[in-house]
Design a protein around this nucleic acid. Structure first.
Lengths: 190, 190
DNA sequence: CTAATTTCTTGATATTTATCAAGAGCTTTT
DNA sequence: AAAAGCTCTTGATAAATATCAAGAAATTAG
């Protein structure tokens, strides 16, 4: 089983191995150089990628700053879901923080999976429902935790990220300034 | 077309009118008195309800306070999605803030819709994807806006809520204390 | 390898938001 | 209508976080 098959299987559960292969064969290898854009705000997002290696930053600009919504990495999918699914203009830009290897499926093939695999929509629904739940938890963390608590929680669960991407982006996605992040970090390293 | 049919149609898009009726007929009227619980943290959530009237508060308790995740009202669905779909213990409690009329489908019937209506999972996927997008925006608001900006934005879009439920719960779901909420409110009323 | 650039840290200070405490307004109950 | 509970407001103060500015450290480019 390829790594892609392994991950898709783990996210979408029991799919027959022939179906699994049908799906993964629609994903084509591609790569990004550090700094390359996967997507720019306002464009339509016409693909979904699986990250084989590297880090991508999902962000949007406000009048006075760039806000990092998320950093995606090995083993995760990346896309602007609302743009992919509803053909709306992308709200986010997505940029490679490092060189990255992706497996990418274009929109037409993505849409075709539903015709190809009868249970696909059900599995996809379950997958998106899980993503929804993760976002609910993330909102809850902003309603109930201080910056320091969010830092500690995130650090415990994503240690590896901290020496691989600029910390300012992690600060932003946790909802604090780089300075606050740095001070909290110092405290937690003592 | 009943109100329930109207809403389901508007959320789930084109469903044949016979299918639409098949679905809505699975929802049974029920009601809650003010203060009644729709769901308690830790239990399994075995139903999905459409709110015909009234207000329900979705919240969870931390060691030192209750945090309101959301307030749901007329025209919206209410459930703990992760518990309903994955049979996990509910993370949230859901309590009626006022008397409320619901149309409720139990889990068995909810699961059965998928067998009954071929395109159901696809429509449901789209529905959950839209909910996902709303949560993404909500997270973004916590990363990019001050308490005052969140207040103003929410107020503009949900004026009617402000004289129908205790403001402390709105404060909590916007991620601020009742005192801060009250001060911002005073400012914005001048 | 050095220079240039970017990122991170630190200190001083300002602003935002939370906490605590008390009282005023509402609702509900009796 | 009075009493009892909530809920909301207000003030004083404390704590958390942001801003601004400068320099240190790390990374990238030449």
């Amino acid at each position: 089983m390829t790594e892609l098959e392994h991950y898709i299987n783990s996210y979408f559960g029991i799919v027959g191995s022939d179906d699994l292969q049908k799906i993964t064969s629609l994903f084509k290898p591609s790569s990004l150089k550090k700094g390359d854009y996967f997507l720019k705000t306002g464009k339509s997002c016409d693909r979904l990628s699986f990250i084989q290696s590297g880090f991508l930053r999902i962000y949007a600009s406000t009048s006075d700053k760039e806000v990092t919504q998320w950093i995606s990495t090995k083993g995760y999918f990346v896309t602007d879901l609302s743009s992919l699914v509803f053909s709306s203009p992308a709200r986010f830009s997505i940029q490679a923080l490092t060189d990255a290897e992706l497996y990418t499926i274009n929109k037409a093939d993505y849409v075709a999976i539903g015709k190809l695999i009868p249970q696909w929509y059900e599995l996809e629904k379950l997958f998106i429902a899980r993503c929804f739940t993760i976002l609910e938890d993330r909102i809850f963390s902003h309603l109930s935790m201080t910056a320091e608590e969010r830092y500690n929680f995130f650090f415990e669960h994503n240690k590896e990220l901290f020496n691989q991407v600029p910390l300012q982006y992690i600060a932003s996605m946790l909802g604090m300034t780089p300075e606050t992040f740095s001070r909290i970090r110092k405290k937690s390293l003592l």
